[in-house]
Every structure is written in C-alpha cells, then in structure tokens.
C-alpha cells in the first residue's frame, strides 16, 4: 500500500467520521450512493485492469514509445491529444491507463494532453452539447479546450 493511498484513505476516513458525527442518516445514504457507484463502476474498472495487463503484456513498449513517446515531439503530442478527444474513457480509469502507458515509454507531455482532452472534450457528448446549449458555444468550447490541453502539456513538458 503506497503512502499516497494511506494519506488519501485517512483523509476520506476523517471526512466520513465528521459526516457520521454530524448526521447519521445522511452518512448512511452517502454510503449507499458509494456502494451503488462501486457496483456500477466495478465491472468496467475490472475490465480496464484486464486491458492494462493486455496492453503492457502484449504490446511491445517500443510501439508505444515510437508513436506517443517523448522523442516523437509534436506529432506524438497531437496523436495523444486527438486520441483523448475521440475516446470515451471515464477519467476514473484513464489515470491508471495513463500510468501504464507512461511506464511503457509514452511521453509525459503526451499523457498530460491525453488526460486533459479526454476529460474536457467529448466527441460523444458534442451533439448533446449543441442541442442543450448551442452550436457556436459548443464548438468554441471544444476547440479552445483542445488548444488549452496542448498548452498545458507543453508547459508541463518544459517544467517536469
């Protein structure tokens, strides 16, 4: 168990305790919501764990490094950002996936761009966003988000 996990678990534990002291009923329903979320997310979390195993076990690290590796520069960055915009993976399971790709030699910038476009841009959601808001707003937001994702990735690449 990593240090990060210990810190996080104890923080959440403290929140839970505070909530329990304040309102028993509400805490119980919070736990019910949590249990339902685990049930709902559980299968896809397990599936992604299996997929990560498959990717790391079967895809040669060379491939990953040669498409989205750091030495690929701008092209790798663009590929990762584009993948993130099109794919629909819940952020919850995108983080471990990003880590496995990083371990296989994917560039740090590429992964930062991937995570940011993955969460901010939803091709799947675009029709819905256009219907609920309007076309101009939706296209502007998604387009600008793509640029912001690239900017974040570039700055992170410079700093880290």
């Amino acid at each position: 168990m990593s240090l990060t996990a210990i810190v996080i678990d104890s923080l959440v534990g403290a929140c839970l305790l505070a909530s329990l002291l304040k309102d028993r009923e509400k805490t119980a329903s919070a736990l019910r919501i949590a249990l339902n979320a685990v049930k709902r997310m559980g299968p896809s979390v397990l599936a992604v764990i299996a997929v990560i195993g498959l990717i790391v076990g079967f895809i040669p690290a060379k491939w990953v490094a040669s498409t989205i590796g750091s030495e690929k520069g701008a092209l790798g960055l663009l590929i990762a950002a584009a993948l993130g915009s099109v794919l629909f993976i819940p952020a919850l399971i995108a983080f471990p996936l990003a880590k496995s790709l990083l371990d296989m030699g994917a560039g740090l910038m590429s992964m930062a761009a991937f995570i940011t476009t993955l969460t901010m841009i939803g091709f799947v959601f675009l029709p819905l966003e256009i219907r609920e808001l309007d076309r101009r707003f939706a296209l502007l937001r998604n387009g600008l988000s793509f640029l912001v994702a690239l900017a974040i990735a570039l700055i992170m690449g410079l700093i880290l």
């Binding site: 168990m1 990593s2 996990a5 996080i8 678990d9 959440v12 534990g13 929140c15 839970l16 909530s19 509400k26 805490t27 329903s29 919070a30 736990l31 019910r32 919501i33 949590a34 249990l35 979320a37 685990v38 997310m41 979390v45 397990l46 764990i49 299996a50 990560i52 195993g53 498959l54 790391v56 076990g57 079967f58 919850l92 471990p96 496995s100």
Partner: peptide, 30 residues
C-alpha cells in the same frame, strides 16, 4: 506477465477505489 501486471493494478485500485466512491457519496449528500 499480463496477469502479473493486472494483479498489481488491481491491488492499487482496491486501496483507493472505496475512498473515491465514499467521497463522491459524501458530496452527493452534503
């Protein structure tokens, strides 16, 4: 090798996922 890697990730998940879900539940309620 794939199985070993999946197992490692599973262990990491098990320690963090309940905390994430509980925090979500707390937010939803409060």
């Amino acid at each position: 090798r794939a199985l070993r890697i999946s197992w490692e990730y599973f262990q990491e998940m098990v320690f963090i996922l309940p905390a994430v879900m509980i925090l979500m539940g707390l937010f939803a309620v409060w």
